[in-house]
């Protein structure tokens, strides 16, 4: 018995202290320079606060204690307390910071859209950790579950750049369909998915050899895919369909279309609740967030937010 207690105590010391989740979803509104705060339980808008010029990328610290927002036209990242919504600090984040991903070690990997670079920052002190030349219009950033690979898409060079951590060198460049925008790894880190907006394509890629295993073109002219996300059981791949005004549900293996969920206009961003029961979309032109119940894959609520909602992150 004392042994068990000791083990528990030891575990408590080893595990990072998680900040209590706020139960909120945070949405950047690119054209109203604001942040919308939603209650993920009641699905109501709680608050809208001015945040700075052209907010786009958004993410949480690994322990949930801090919220990061990229202000593209201010060339910096602002750090908020997700609970009090107070601005804690901000730091310069290179030219035109757009999308970013937070590494399990706490570092922020950013695409600097107008500078053909990916940069890495330590948000604790704003120090630049690395600066990596990539292709034109870098956009999507996603990180392997073990943290050893960071993938940056360059939209106008049509590539996924695979960056090794901690070396921060590019070990592979994968040519995909025109205008790659976003991607995600599976939980095992064996496969990744990427969207190509202008080609209307989704690619399934081996995460060791980085060979394209399969690509599929969404069979709808207006389908311009952006965010992609796996469901919790990894049985479904959700794709934000852009101008198709729908979320596409694909089989993650065959990439065959299973379902089409109509949402607001120009849907770009996706985020999943921690329990996997709800999928949130940002609908740019409509200025809404659509909430999808993943048991039925249908919209249960549409929440009005600011102009051109871009990024969304859930703190639950």
């Amino acid at each position: 018995m004392p042994g068990t207690i000791l083990t528990l105590l030891t575990l408590l010391c080893i595990l990072p202290i998680q900040a209590a989740p706020t139960g909120r979803a945070f949405v950047t509104n690119e054209r109203s320079n604001s942040l919308s705060v939603l209650d993920t339980d009641t699905l109501e808008l709680i608050q809208t606060l001015p945040i700075g010029k052209r907010p786009r990328g958004i993410g949480l610290a690994p322990d949930g204690s801090e919220l990061y927002i990229a202000l593209s036209e201010e060339n910096r990242i602002v750090v908020l307390d997700p609970d009090t919504l107070q601005v804690l600090r901000s730091f310069p984040a290179g030219s035109d910071p757009e999308a970013f991903a937070v590494h399990p070690n706490g570092h922020i990997y950013i695409s600097n859209e107008d500078d053909a670079r990916a940069t890495v920052y330590d948000p604790r002190d704003g120090r630049q950790v690395a600066d990596i030349p990539v292709g034109l219009e870098p956009e999507g950033v996603f990180i392997s579950p073990d943290g050893k690979r960071v993938v940056v898409t360059s939209e106008s060079t049509n590539m996924l750049h695979v960056i090794r951590v901690p070396e921060h060198d590019i070990i592979k460049n994968v040519l995909v369909g025109a205008r790659p925008r976003a991607g995600t790894f599976n939980r095992a880190g064996t496969v990744l998915y990427a969207s190509s907006e202008v080609a209307g394509e989704i690619s399934r890629i081996d995460a060791v050899s980085f060979r394209i295993l399969r690509s599929t073109r969404l069979d709808e002219d207006r389908a311009k895919p952006k965010d992609v996300l796996l469901d919790k059981q990894e049985q479904r791949l959700y794709v934000a369909g852009g101008r198709a005004n729908a979320v596409f549900v694909l089989d993650p293996e065959s990439l065959e279309l299973r379902k089409r969920i109509p949402v607001g206009k120009r849907t770009w961003g996706l985020a999943m609740s921690a329990d996997g029961s709800r999928l949130f979309t940002t609908d740019g032109v409509s200025g809404t967030v659509s909430v999808i119940d993943t048991t039925t894959d249908s919209v249960i609520k549409t929440i009005a937010v600011g102009k051109f909602p871009w990024g969304i992150v859930i703190d639950d």
Binding site: E167, H168, D169
Partner: peptide, 15 residues
């Protein structure tokens, strides 16, 4: 002028 891309394995050396 475009910055040189470090070849794989030379990231630390390049820094």
């Amino acid at each position: 002028s475009t910055p040189p891309v470090p070849p794989p394995g030379y990231g630390a050396l390049c820094r």
